[in-house]
Write a protein that binds this DNA or RNA. Structure first.
Lengths: 342, 342
DNA sequence: TTGTATGCGTTATCAA
DNA sequence: TTGATAACGCATACAA
C-alpha cells in the first residue's frame, strides 16, 4: 500500500514518466514490448494511480457529494446504500453531508461539496429550505445535480422520487374503501415536495369518493421527537372524531400508534391507521401497521446512475429527467369497518 | 462558487502567488496592509482553497474514511450520524465505504481510502475478516486508525466499542433471575469481536448462576435475511426445549420474535426473549421486545474525536486507547416465570 | 516584506 | 516510438 508512483516505474525501467503514463493507458503510440514491460512491472509493484493528482490535473474528482437531512433514518440510509453501491461500481466515491433539516447547513454543505470539487451532487432538501436560489445558482454554473425524494419542481433539475401522489392516493382510497370517512392526515413540514404530493394524493382520493376535504383534519409535524401525542390529541378533539389516520413519516406513524394505544383506542376497529413509512418490522408491531413504502434503495441507485450519466456526458446539453418510482401499499390486519361502505 | 484560485487574487492585486498564499495563511512575514488587501479581496470574490491541491501537496486532505459493513442498518447509520457531526465541526469530510460483509471489499475499500489520501480511517470489520494483516500494514505505515464496534484486540489500535460483555451478561442474568435456565443464544458470525464478547458475557452469567454452558444452545447466523426460522427450529428441537432466547442482532431479534409467534409460542410466558439490538420501536412490537442497546451515535462521535486527535498530533507517539461505552438493558413486559427462581 | 523556483503525481503538448 | 517540459493549485525554501 505504499504510495508508488509512475516515477518509480519510470526509474526502475529506465523510461520517462510520459512513456510510462502512456503505456499504462494503453496508448497506440507505445510499442507492444514497452507496454508489456510497464504493465507487468506496474502490476508487480501494485501501482495505483493517485486520484488526487488526477483530480488536480483533469477536472474530475471521481467523488459524488450526497447531502441529506439525516443519515440515521430508514429511508435515507437505504437510499445511501443504493447510491454507494452504484458509485462504487462506477469508480466514484461518496462524500456524505447532513443538513439536520437546516437551511444554513444545507447551504454550507453545498459550498463544502463544491470546494471539495465533487463531480456531482445528490441532494434531498431540508424541510427548512424554501429559497432555492443556492441550488439554481449551482445548477446554472453547470454542476451536475440530481435531486431525490425531497425535490422542487420549480428547479428544472433531474429528479428521482417515489410516486408520492399515487401512494397517498392508494392509502387514502384503501381507508375510504373500508368505510372510513373522517380520515386525519398527520404529516411533515409543508414546504416539502413530498408533503405536498402526499396531501394532493390524499385530497384526490377524498374527492374520488365524494368526501369533502376538511383542513382541520390535516396536521403538520416536524421531524422532532415526541410531538405526535399533541397532534393526535388535537385531531381526536375534532367532531366528529376521525375514524382513520394517515401519517407521513416513520416517527409520526410510531408516535400515532403509541398515542392511540395509550388512549385505549382500538386499531383498526375504532381508528384505522396507515403510515407512509420505511419502518422495519411494520408487520411485527402491535397492532401490525399498514404501510405505504418507498423503494428507497432503488431511488438511491437511480439517482446515482442518473448523476453519473450527467457527469460523464457533461459536454452535451444535459437533458432533465424526472423518474417516479411506484410505492407499495401493504395492508396489515383487517380494517374493514363497513362492508357496505360506498 | 466559481473555481477562483490564488492566482486570480495575485493577478488582480498585482502580487505574486506566494505573497497571496502567505497573506491568506496570516504569515508573520507579510505586511498588515497587504494582508488586509488580500483578505478582503479573497472574501469579496469568495475564494476557497482547493482541497485537492492541498491534498496533493501532501499536507492533509481533511477527509475521514469510514468503512462499515452496511449503511442501511440502525447501529451503523446512527454511528455515522455521530461521526459526521463531529467531523463537520472539526472541518473534516466523511467518505463512506461499505464492505457488505466482504473481506475483499474491505480490502479494496481500504486501498481506495488510502489512494484518496484520507487523513484517517474509521473502521468496523466485516464478518468475513479474519486475516488482519492489511490493517496491521496500514497501521504500521502510520495511518491514523480507529476501530469501532467490530474490533480486534490483537490489533493494538485505538478502539471505541460498547461494553458488549457487560451488556450480554446483564441480559442473560436478567433471564436467569426470572427463572430461565435453558437460554438459547442466537448470534452473529463467530469471527467478530462483538460476537465473542457477547458470548463471553452470556457464559459468565450462566457461570454466576451455576448453570452449565451448553454449546447446543448457541447458533451462529449471518447477516442474511430469513435465516432465523431455521435456527429457531433447530433450537426448539433441543431437549429440554429452551425457555429463553438471547439474540445478537436486529434481524435475528425480529426473525426470532416472528418465528416464535408463528409457532404459537407465547412470549415471554413460554419463552422469554431479549435482543441485543438498536431496533426502533422495540416497545411497540408485539409483544414488546426487551433489548440491550448500544449508544451508537456516541460511539461514532467518540471514534471520530479520537481519530481526529490522532491525526492532529500525528508527530507525537500515538497512544492507543480503548473506550468501552455502557449498553442499556431495557426490560419490556413481565418475564417473571418463577418468582422463587434461585 | 515580497518574489522566484520547485515539487506533489499525472497527463498533454511538443520535440526528437 | 519515446522523451522533455509545462501545467493543474498550492505551499515553501530560497533569493532578493
Amino acid at each position: 500500500m505504499d504510495p508508488v508512483t509512475i516515477k518509480d516505474i519510470a526509474r526502475a525501467l529506465n523510461l520517462s514518466t510520459s512513456t510510462v503514463s502512456r503505456a499504462l493507458r494503453d496508448s497506440y503510440e507505445i510499442s507492444p514490448e514497452t507496454k508489456r514491460l510497464v504493465m507487468e512491472y506496474a502490476e508487480k509493484i501494485n501501482y495505483r494511480p493517485n486520484p488526487i493528482a488526477l483530480s488536480l490535473k483533469g477536472n474530475s474528482s471521481k467523488a459524488l457529494g450526497v447531502i441529506v437531512p439525516q443519515i440515521a433514518n430508514n429511508f435515507f440510509s437505504q437510499a445511501i446504500n443504493g447510491i454507494e453501491a452504484i458509485a462504487y461500481n462506477r469508480g466514484y466515491h461518496v462524500i456524505i453531508f447532513q443538513t439536520h433539516e437546516s437551511y444554513e447547513r444545507e447551504l454550507a454543505n453545498m459550498q463544502q461539496a463544491v470546494a471539495r470539487r465533487v463531480d456531482g451532487l445528490l441532494l434531498s432538501l431540508s424541510s427548512e429550505t424554501s429559497d432555492l436560489s443556492h441550488i439554481k445558482a449551482l445548477h446554472a454554473q453547470g454542476m451536475p445535480l440530481v435531486l431525490f425524494d425531497r425535490v422542487a419542481d420549480e428547479l428544472n433539475v433531474s429528479q428521482v422520487v417515489a410516486d408520492n401522489f399515487t401512494g397517498a392516493y392508494a392509502a387514502t382510497a384503501h381507508l375510504l374503501s373500508t368505510g372510513r370517512r373522517r380520515i386525519a392526515h398527520l404529516t411533515i413540514p409543508p414546504y416539502l415536495s413530498i408533503t405536498q404530493e402526499r396531501l394532493a394524493g390524499y385530497r384526490a382520493a377524498l374527492d374520488a369518493y365524494g368526501v369533502p376535504f376538511d383542513e382541520n383534519l390535516v396536521r403538520y409535524g416536524t421531524f422532532g421527537p415526541d410531538e405526535a401525542d399533541q397532534l393526535v390529541d388535537e385531531l381526536l378533539a375534532q367532531s366528529p372524531r376521525p375514524d382513520a389516520f394517515f401519517t407521513a413519516s416513520d416517527r409520526l406513524a410510531l408516535g400515532c400508534l403509541k398515542a392511540l394505544r395509550e388512549r385505549g383506542i382500538a386499531i383498526p376497529e375504532d381508528i384505522s391507521l396507515i403510515g407512509f413509512t420505511n419502518l422495519q418490522a411494520a408487520e411485527m408491531l402491535n397492532p401490525p401497521l399498514s404501510t405505504v413504502t418507498q423503494p428507497a434503495q432503488e431511488i438511491g441507485q437511480l439517482a446515482a446512475e442518473r448523476l453519473i450519466e450527467l457527469i460523464e456526458r457533461k459536454h452535451k446539453a444535459a437533458p432533465v429527467s424526472t423518474v417516479k418510482l411506484p410505492t407499495v401499499l401493504t395492508v396489515r390486519g383487517s380494517s374493514q369497518r363497513d362492508p357496505a361502505g360506498s
